[in-house]
């Protein structure tokens, strides 16, 4: 949250993908416009109650505007096909077979809605394999840097990556 706020510029048009409860997007202070997306109906209602402009859509599929700043906290729990239970909680957590599938799809689709010099903040877990995620950032043409990290009690590390073309 504080990293997103620190990166925010007054003329930013912001998209948060997979906003969940909308806590982060709703608390951004001092930009032109904020839109949040989530495919989960419960998340969308929560985010709306938090005062956001919410669209239920996959990443940014139903949105035709260009954004200068995009936030994404992808689902990342590696899930084998036999573990899949097909409910909304699973969509919120499931990172595909290697924990990086939603990140891959995000990187593939997001250029359509990002300004050429747009910035992205993405939260990555050590469960997703930092090196392999960094390889993905490079593959999709982004320069990246870590702007924050936190190590949880169970040893899992979370990093915030700043991406820009």
């Amino acid at each position: 949250m504080r990293h997103a706020q620190k990166e925010l510029k007054p003329d930013d048009i912001v998209l948060e993908v997979g906003t969940g409860s909308g806590y982060i997007a709703a608390h951004l202070d001092g930009c032109l416009y904020v839109v949040a997306t989530d495919i989960n109906p419960h998340a969308a209602i929560m985010a709306k109650l938090n005062g956001l402009n919410v669209v239920r859509t996959d990443i940014a599929a139903g949105i035709c505007r260009i954004f200068s700043f995009v936030l994404f906290n992808p689902p990342y729990i590696p899930t084998h096909p036999e573990e899949k239970c097909d409910d909304w909680l699973e969509y919120a957590l499931d990172g595909g077979f290697d924990g990086r599938e939603p990140l891959r799809r995000f990187l593939l689709q997001i250029p359509e809605v990002l300004t050429p010099d747009g910035r992205i903040l993405v939260l990555i877990s050590s469960l997703q394999d930092f090196e392999k995620c960094e390889e993905l950032f490079i593959k999709f043409g982004y320069f990246f840097q870590t702007i924050g990290n936190e190590i949880l009690d169970d040893g899992e590390e979370l990093r915030i990556y700043h991406l820009q073309k």
């Binding site: 919410v54 669209v55 599929a61 139903g62 949105i63 035709c64 505007r65």
Partner: peptide
Amino acid sequence: MKRELYDILCCPVCKG
């Protein structure tokens, strides 16, 4: 949704 949000929505399939 506010009416202004309509301006930035498109078909998720054909983008029309």
